[in-house]
């Protein structure tokens, strides 16, 4: 009914967190430059937090956008106030809130858990030595 709103809300929070993390990383970088710190020549072996959070935000925004379209398709979201057809009836509203707290939260948890596994794998992959170039088949 409106389960995508839970993931959209998470997307807003994660986007803000990613922006804050990026600003902190940039200010930390400028402090390094001011102190004329040694130029770091070795390659970073971990993704910065801001990039990790932006990947989660992209997953959530993309998913929420397509799910919003699905709800429009099913007539659950309309382009006029109150935008959600379930808001017109108290019984439907209660059902909608129940669906948001069950299906919506489950969706948000699944996306977040998969993202956490992806980022764990990404750190492991980045820590590996560079692979040998693939040889062309004879």
């Amino acid at each position: 009914m409106a389960c995508f709103l839970v993931t959209a809300a998470e997307a807003v929070v994660v986007t803000v967190a990613a922006r804050v993390a990026k600003n902190r990383e940039m200010s930390a970088e400028s402090v390094k430059l001011e102190k004329n710190a040694e130029i770091e020549t070795r390659r970073e072996n971990k993704l910065p937090w801001s990039k990790k959070l932006m990947i989660l935000a992209s997953l959530l925004w993309g998913g929420a956008f397509l799910l919003c379209y699905e709800h429009i398709w099913h007539g659950e979201v309309v382009p006029w106030f109150p935008f959600l057809t379930a808001m017109n009836d108290p019984g439907d509203t209660a059902e909608m809130l129940h669906e948001m707290s069950t299906v919506g939260v489950t969706m948000a948890v699944i996306v977040t858990v998969v993202w956490a596994i992806m980022m764990f794998a990404a750190d492991k992959i980045m820590a590996r030595p560079d692979p040998e170039p693939v040889k062309a088949a004879a």
Binding site: C3, F4, T7, I55, S58, L59, L60, W61, G62, G63, A64, F65, L66, L67, T102, V103, T106, M107, V109, I110, V111, V114
Partner: peptide
């Protein structure tokens, strides 16, 4: 990311 995000969300819907 768009299609994986939507797929994971529909997976949650499918579980229910």
């Amino acid at each position: 990311v768009c299609f994986w995000g939507a797929s994971l969300m529909w997976l949650g819907d499918a579980i229910f």
